[in-house]
Design a protein around this nucleic acid. Structure first.
Lengths: 315, 315
DNA sequence: GAGGGGCATAACCTCAGATTATGCACAGAC
DNA sequence: GTCTGTGCATAATCTGAGGTTATGCCCCTC
């Protein structure tokens, strides 16, 4: 044990002693420490017995520190002041090192979490506070967010942005679904299938209607058998073989690589926009935020060619 | 409360943290602190939660301090080292300030204790450890005694001495005893009274036989109705009216002044010796010892004239 | 002389800090 | 590849240090 512990059985005694010494009153110290006056009296007696030092002179209603008590009080207060300063500065630094990021649930679950281990390995001292947000129009400053992602042209006032990944949307379903309900030759065939939709209240994303119209398939009325609250839900339903979902290429990349999802068609839609990494421009970013941004860019989310499978000609 | 306490609910957490950080092992820290390993694990978790700081990186069987943990460990250890040094030096100084004195029980009870308040008031930071000794030939060095008293000519090898009080021995009894059994005109009359004796195994003091012989009263055989183990006992018996005791003038001074004892005769015996304050010569005395010696000398134990009372002619 | 305030102690209570039981993860040995 | 050992983590439970209440003592003020 640290040798100090052989001198005082409980470091908490010093909290008590410091308060009593500063207030020159066991009663006032007790109030401050939220304990009863006899608790302070007893604790000081135990400290005096343990150390063999007379720390206070009790003079009826006046409490005086002995010379030894004065000395110990001064040093204890300095030690406590110093430790407080150390912990506070560590806390402040920690707060600066905690990068507050906010993404859609689908991005977090489908893309970020599987890769986070690599970030942690490369930057063990950077902490991320990951919030799942359901809005496009989040005020980064207001909500004290260090970094987020946003779909668009990358030009927003008060925002720094870095292009992250192309928006490319394509239908996905499970291999089982395709085997059981396929083949699907052209986009119009999709109308005969269970299309998995999602609607996010505060985020505008391309839906089935838009996708089909972009592929010259007029849609008078779209069946709405399944509507999820976000893209993540519809992707998970697709993985379970419950229909065909629209998948953003970078989000379904892992599922496809793993064979859990396949491309029933080779058609996809590129909006011409991209998802950008964004930060508020008003304050210099934390070191950890820069590290995280650089790491995100390194991931090269556009990389990797996905081949349609399932209904490709096979022997 | 000290603001540190708002950051860490228990200062004892720091004991635990310091040990774990130094040993780089919760298990080893637990052994050192005499607690179980889960206790250390839990305490560190609570400290991390309270401060919001990640202090350790757990890597299977290897424990590493984070950068924050390193910083806190370094500062905690310095603070603890410093406090330990302060308390230790206070303890050493206290040991130096504790004056170990040794006197006969009769001196302590009859003379010293009634006056000690004055010493305390003048020297509040000097602590006395007062032992009651039953020997004249006490080895001061062997028994780590700083100051004592001894009867004699004041010349002892290896001893510093200061004359304290003349040895003057005189009969004393209570007023009631004198009223009931008096008057007593001359020393020979004492033989008709209850003489209170004492014998100390390891201290030679004048007894009734010697006193009477010094006053030309041959004593063939002395009644030994009461024999106490020290002078204190016989004085207390005299106060209770149980007989006539021999009292050393300085020891009975207070009782006489208070009227609890009277002098039945005006005869007293002066041995030509004195009681001396003594200290071992081999080491420089502690400051407190010097202060106490000076204070004893200031008391002027020889001062004050005692008048025989009781059978003096009165109108 | 009575009342108030603050420290001290005894007797008793209780929950923070400890335990035991057990699980998990990983490295090393075979 | 499997098994064993080691160390950290957590849940459930236990218990005694640190708290409480009750009360006494001492001294000052009115």
């Amino acid at each position: 044990m640290h040798r100090l512990r052989s001198l005082i059985p409980s470091a908490n005694y010093l909290f008590c002693f410091e308060a009593a010494a500063r207030r020159r009153s066991f009663t006032a110290a007790a109030q401050e420490l939220n304990v009863s006056q006899p608790a302070v009296s007893k604790t000081i007696r135990l400290l005096e017995e343990a150390t063999g030092l007379k720390l206070f002179r009790r003079e009826h209603t006046r409490l005086e520190l002995t010379a030894e008590g004065q000395r110990l009080y001064k040093e204890t207060q300095e030690a406590f002041d110093h430790l407080h300063m150390v912990i506070s500065s560590l806390q402040k630094k920690h707060s600066n090192d905690v990068v507050r990021v906010s993404f859609s649930a689908s991005f977090v679950q489908l893309w970020l979490l599987p890769r986070l281990k690599d970030f942690k390995a490369k930057h063990p001292d950077v902490s991320l506070r990951i919030e799942e947000s359901s809005r496009d129009d989040q005020d980064l400053v207001e909500e004290d967010i260090d970094l987020s992602a946003r779909l668009g042209n990358g030009k927003w006032p008060g925002i720094h942005s870095w292009r992250f990944v192309t928006e490319e949307v394509l239908p996905v379903c499970s291999p089982d679904y395709l085997r059981d309900h396929g083949p699907i030759h052209e986009p119009a065939d999709l109308l005969q299938h269970t299309l998995l939709n999602f609607e996010e209240r505060h985020r505008t994303r391309l839906g089935w209607r838009e996708w089909l119209e972009r592929h010259a398939v007029p849609v008078a009325r779209l069946k709405q058998d399944f509507v999820f609250t976000d893209a993540l839900g519809s992707i998970e339903a697709a993985v379970l073989g419950q229909g065909i979902a629209l998948g953003w290429k970078h989000l379904v990349h892992d599922h496809i690589r793993a064979g859990r999802l396949v491309l029933p068609l080779q058609e996809s839609y590129r909006s011409g926009h991209a998802i950008h990494i964004i930060m508020p421009a008003q304050r210099p970013p934390k070191r950890g935020t820069e590290l995280f941004r650089d790491w995100l860019i390194e991931q090269d989310a556009d990389a990797g060619v996905l081949q349609p499978t399932g209904n490709a000609d096979t022997g």
